[in-house]
């Protein structure tokens, strides 16, 4: 509803901000609960079956990292996709809001893919006996991670003025279209080389309780990523505002 004087609109704004605050707190609590639940599902309820059928049963405990590993990647890739959309939107409309979304997407994406890239080797060492293998999926993920770290480097090394959003968006578009080519190159490259047998059993035959644990994990990680994303986005918006206010203040003094 539109208010005609400034007094009620101010009050309205306060109510709005209070409502936002409550909603925010509720979401954080929800994320924590979901995390808790996912943890219980993953550690207690999911059956101790290794999806690597050839390995003995006692190895199955390592499998539980899978409930962190996969959700982390899903959250990370989603964030990268948001970065691409926001970058394209920035070039379209030149709105700094899109740029803030792009920053948040890239940073959250790097954090979550890092979690995935760290949990992967922790699992691989006991199961495969090696920390890392140049399997197509691993390689592609690593390349993706490298690209977005490079993106963040550009942001760090570009003077903060109108140039940074424009250049970062130009880079993000380039990187995004690289992913399918990377896929084609890496697939072909690796299939020509011997590689360890990864999945003995069919990946699709997940026990229903394992599926529950997995989807709980995915929901929890997506919500967490969403919250971090929003936090980072608002931080960036504030930073943009502060930069303006600083310069205003500096000019007023002269």
């Amino acid at each position: 509803m539109a208010s005609t004087t400034s007094q009620p609109s101010h009050a309205q704004a306060q109510v709005d901000s209070k409502a936002r605050q409550t909603g925010w707190t509720a979401l954080i609590i929800l994320a924590l609960l979901l995390m808790e639940w996912a943890l219980v599902e993953a550690l207690k309820i999911a059956p101790p079956i290794s999806i690597v059928a050839k390995h003995p049963h006692k190895m199955a405990i390592y499998m539980r990292i899978f409930y962190v590993h996969v959700p982390a990647f899903m959250a990370g890739f989603t964030a990268f996709f948001v970065n691409f959309l926001a970058s394209a939107a920035y070039l379209w409309k030149r709105s700094l809001k899109s740029d803030a979304l792009a920053i948040a997407g890239a940073e959250v994406g790097v954090v979550f893919t890092s979690i995935g890239l760290i949990t992967g080797p922790i699992w691989a060492k006991p199961i495969w006996g090696i920390w890392w293998t140049w399997d197509p999926r691993l390689t592609l993920t690593l390349v993706l991670w490298v690209m977005y770290v490079s993106y963040l480097m550009l942001r760090q090394l570009t003077p903060t003025n109108e140039q940074q959003p424009r250049l970062a968006a130009a880079l993000a578009i380039f990187f995004f279209f690289d992913v399918p080519i990377d896929y084609m190159a890496i697939r072909w490259w690796r299939t020509q080389h011997p590689q360890p047998v990864l999945f003995g059993g069919a990946n699709s035959g997940l026990d229903p309780r394992m599926a529950t644990a997995l989807w709980c994990g995915v929901a929890a990680f997506l919500l967490l990523a969403g919250l971090l994303f929003r936090l980072r986005y608002r931080l960036e918006c504030d930073r943009q505002r502060i930069a303006v206010l600083r310069r205003e203040a500096a000019l007023r003094e002269t």
Partner: peptide, 12 residues
């Protein structure tokens, strides 16, 4: 730092 990550498939 920008070119190398992008050029990975081409370099391969």
């Amino acid at each position: 730092l920008l070119l190398l990550p992008l050029a990975i498939p081409a370099i391969v």
